[in-house]
Design a protein around this nucleic acid. Structure first.
Length: 713
DNA sequence: CGAAAGGCTCTTTTT
DNA sequence: GAGCCTTTCG
């Protein structure tokens, strides 16, 4: 194949500029992925660069997988020699190999957010810091912020300005001690430790610098300072570093991504070439233009304008629903209509929202409408209790020093080892500077006693010998076999199956088994599950609609996109109201969502919405006002027309609500349950509670102001 | 020790 | 509204 075929001049420029630093500013749908893959193909095929000498860093594992398979198609089996992955995955690999130089066990555990929070709470408890005065979350964020800027505990000492800093420093210090004793690294440690490994061991660094002649970084606008530093280290010798990004799509500042990296790049590499990709091939002209007007008010941006030669396409539909249930119905009905008209396949439809909590109403409604859907995130698979428990057993077997995993499962299923016993054990461990597991061992060996009942001591000994036995087995069997063994021997299988939602939870474990089956050994399996996200498992082949957060939607595209919750307080989120910077990020988030759409875009809002326990009315999102009305269908004249245009029965606003007079025996029609007969109706406050019998569905108690009831003569 | 019930807080986005 | 923590009871 010809790596330069079918590229526009700007894309071609980005592909051919292989020497020296290059910054590619790529708008949405401008063929960014094409540029990256073709650039690699050009290096390998045309210039004869060995794939071993190319590193490409992506934002997610999913993006890495896709890049790899695209390159496989272009280069064949040689693509396997490329280094493609996220910063985290690449660093983990390096640390497994080189960690010894910095006193790191090659079997280190990787702690996720949840584990991290456990350690922070533990550290706070040990230090006698009241979690009500200092929120563990805030401390976690402060520690993450420090790490993402490569600030270690010892570096933090000099930064203390006030009491809060003092607390952060103390927790940070204890936190690292606990991690160290557990031979565990958190996500940010993967980056920080690799950076300092390179800094302190130039011989190791030059090994990698010599190898990687070409370094590519995708989604550069969402990298943090630690990641950028790593990229610079890797590319330190040849300086053939190509970063690709779009400042307008920077939406991860809360994870300490630093948009200033783009400015730093131009400063650090004054001879860097800059290429703009501004032609959009993805969306209709209407969508591109709307996106442009949404992002325009941002002051902190590089001036470049997206344009397209595509058709004008359908107008954008802005619609208002009464509440989130109706919003969901509106979406479901419109999807039905589109399917009926063969406008799109279900897999080409996505519904996007600001917060995961919003998916609930959509899910409920889709189930009732029988609309097949898949949901990304929400209750994430790897955050489910049973999954975390099962993995904790395996992690403990792999690395017995992993105290977070040990504490997690020492009494799951219950084996008479209560909180008091665990506290006793961990204070003994703490006092002697021992890992928790060694304290357990000491008690089990009777070489040391802790003040607990003999029955409890026996429980500890039993648990210890069971774990030792499993550890012995782990050398001989595969990952799946070990998982099965664990589930059986520890009694976890029985425990799950007999517990609440036993069947569902057991199914989840079977799902985990499938993952384990594909892995060679325990180490591979654990590495895999530590760094995966739900998005990585998004199956695009099944013909179902996709429910997804705006953040996760970055990098994806769909024919039809619904963005729901277009309200002040939701998008933009309330938490951004007092910060202009955060408000700009909300705007970018909206921009990302809008530019995911190829052909049709729906912006939907609800007049009322319950957030948490409270229900309230929100004004329309300010972003809606920024879209020129000529791009919108039936909005400017009257709000209700848009709803009607979509074939959904409009509903008057709440204060004007006219409740139908209903009495027992009346026939009514419900938007979801269909036709039914009123059994009883009684007034409640300003409302009416109606009991309706629906054939096949059953008897439902409904509040007249909420239920969508129509009187059928 | 463990299960169940009640009270509290917060509630954005995720490698 | 839900998850997390604490309290209470068996």
């Amino acid at each position: 194949m010809d790596a330069l075929a079918d590229l526009n001049p700007a894309q071609k420029d980005a592909v051919e500029t292989v020497e020296g630093p290059l910054l590619v500013l790529a708008g949405p749908g401008s063929g960014k992925t094409r540029v990256i893959t073709h650039r690699i193909a050009y290096l390998v095929q045309t210039l004869g660069v060995s794939p071993r000498r190319i590193m490409a860093v992506t934002f997610t594992n999913k993006a890495a997988g896709e890049m790899r398979s695209r390159l496989q198609a272009m280069l064949g089996p040689r693509a396997a020699e490329l280094t493609v992955g996220t910063f985290h995955a690449i660093c983990a690999r390096i640390l497994r190999i080189e960690g010894a130089a910095i006193g790191l066990d090659s079997q280190f555990a990787i702690y996720d957010d949840d584990d991290q929070m456990n350690v922070i709470k533990q550290a706070m408890e040990q230090l006698g810091i009241d979690p009500k005065r200092f929120s563990p979350r805030a401390l976690q964020s402060a520690i993450d912020a420090a790490k993402s800027q490569l600030v270690r505990v010892q570096d933090y000492a000099g930064r203390r300005n006030n009491y809060a800093d003092e607390i952060i420093h103390r927790v940070y210090q204890r936190y690292q001690e606990i991690l160290h004793r557990s031979q565990a690294l958190d996500f940010d440690d993967l980056l920080v430790r690799t950076h300092y490994l390179f800094e302190e061991h130039p011989d190791i660094l030059s090994k990698y610098q010599n190898r990687y002649v070409h370094v590519l970084i995708d989604e550069f606008q969402d990298t943090n300072i630690a990641q950028y530093s790593l990229a610079r280290q890797m590319a330190g010798k040849y300086k053939n570093i190509c970063v690709v990004g779009d400042p307008d799509q920077s939406i991860y500042s809360w994870r300490h991504a630093d948009i200033r990296n783009i400015l730093s790049f131009e400063k650090d590499y004054p001879n860097a070439k800059v290429v703009f990709l501004e032609q959009n091939y993805r969306s209709t002209q209407t969508i591109v233009e709307a996106a442009h007007h949404i992002i325009l008010p941002n002051l902190q941006r590089k001036q470049y304008k997206l344009w397209t030669e595509n058709d004008k396409g359908a107008p954008i539909v802005v619609a208002e629903a009464y509440n989130e249930q109706e919003e969901a119905q509106l979406v479901a009905q419109e999807i039905e209509k589109l399917m009926g008209q063969k406008e799109a396949r279900l897999r080409d439809v996505a519904i996007m929202y600001r917060t995961n909590a919003q998916s609930r109403a959509l899910e409920d409604t889709f189930i009732r409408y029988g609309t097949p859907y898949k949901i990304v995130g929400a209750t994430r698979f790897y955050e489910r209790r049973e999954i975390k428990d099962a993995i904790a057993y395996l992690r403990l077997i792999y690395n017995p020093l992993d105290s977070v995993s040990l504490s997690r499962i020492i009494n799951v299923p219950p084996r008479g080892i209560g909180q008091r016993t665990i506290d006793e054990l961990s204070s003994m461990a703490q006092a002697r500077g021992l890992p928790l597991y060694h304290a357990l061992q000491a008690v089990a060996d009777k070489s040391s006693a802790i003040p607990v009942a003999s029955r409890t001591a026996a429980g500890l000994a039993g648990f210890y010998s069971m774990m030792e036995e499993l550890r012995g087995e782990s050398q001989k069997v595969s990952a799946v076999e070990l998982l099965d063994l664990v589930l059986e021997k520890t009694g976890y299988k029985k425990y799950v199956q007999q517990g609440e939602d036993g069947e569902d939870r057991w199914d989840n474990i079977q799902e985990l088994r499938n993952v384990a089956r594909e892995k060679e050994n325990l180490s591979d399996f654990l590495e895999g599950v530590a760094l995966v996200s739900d998005l990585d498992n998004l199956d695009e082949r099944s013909d179902t609609a996709t429910l997804i957060t705006l953040h996760q939607a970055k990098g994806l595209e769909f024919d039809v996109v619904f963005i729901v919750g277009m309200e002040e307080g939701v998008l933009p989120h309330v938490r951004s109201f007092d910060s202009p910077e955060q408000m700009e990020e909300e705007r970018r988030l909206c921009y990302v969502g809008v530019t995911r759409a190829r052909r049709r875009l729906y912006l939907v809002r609800a007049f009322r919405r319950s957030l948490g326990g409270m229900s309230g009315a929100n004004p329309p999102s300010r972003f809606l006002k920024d879209i020129p009305s000529k791009l919108i269908a039936g909005y400017s004249s009257a709000k209700e027309t848009a709803v009607t245009a979509m074939g959904v029965t409009p509903r008057p606003a709440a204060p004007l609500l006219v409740l139908p007079e209903l009495k027992p025996g009346d026939s009514v029609k419900h938007g979801v349950f269909g036709e039914g007969v009123v059994v009883s109706a009684k007034p409640v406050k300003d409302d009416k509670e109606v009991v309706v019998a629906f054939p096949r569905i059953g008897v439902k108690k409904l509040l007249l102001s909420y239920a969508k009831l129509e009187k059928v003569r």
